[in-house]
């Protein structure tokens, strides 16, 4: 199952590394990454494969959210289906 991770917030050193190691620790494989920084505002979008995830999806989502909250970042993971449903016929 594929999912989209989005990280939005103020740019700081090591955001990508931290999020990637958190995902790796849970067995989530990163398939694609894109990121932009606009006026110090950081936006990263990752396509990930969660079929090998070692914890329930809900727990992973909560862990990412908590990780972001402490750093002033909004981090979320959503199943890819929602974006396909809304933007593709």
């Amino acid at each position: 199952m594929k999912a989209i991770v989005t990280v939005i917030g103020k740019d700081t050193v090591g955001i990508i590394a931290e999020v990637c190691s958190l995902l790796a620790a849970r067995g989530v494989n990163v398939l694609d990454i894109s990121q932009t920084v606009l006026q110090e505002y950081f936006t990263m979008i990752m396509l990930v494969d969660v079929s090998g995830c070692t914890c329930p999806f809900v727990d992973l989502a909560e862990e990412l959210k908590q990780h972001g909250t402490g750093r002033g970042l909004s981090i979320r993971i959503q199943r890819e289906d929602i974006f396909n449903a809304m933007h593709r016929i």
Binding site: I4, T6, S34, I45, F83, N84, M86, H87, R88
Partner: peptide, 16 residues
């Protein structure tokens, strides 16, 4: 593949 603009559009709809 869904593009970044579409992903951000959905997130903005939910967030804002």
């Amino acid at each position: 593949m869904i593009n970044n603009r579409e992903i951000m559009q959905t997130i903005e709809m939910i967030d804002q």
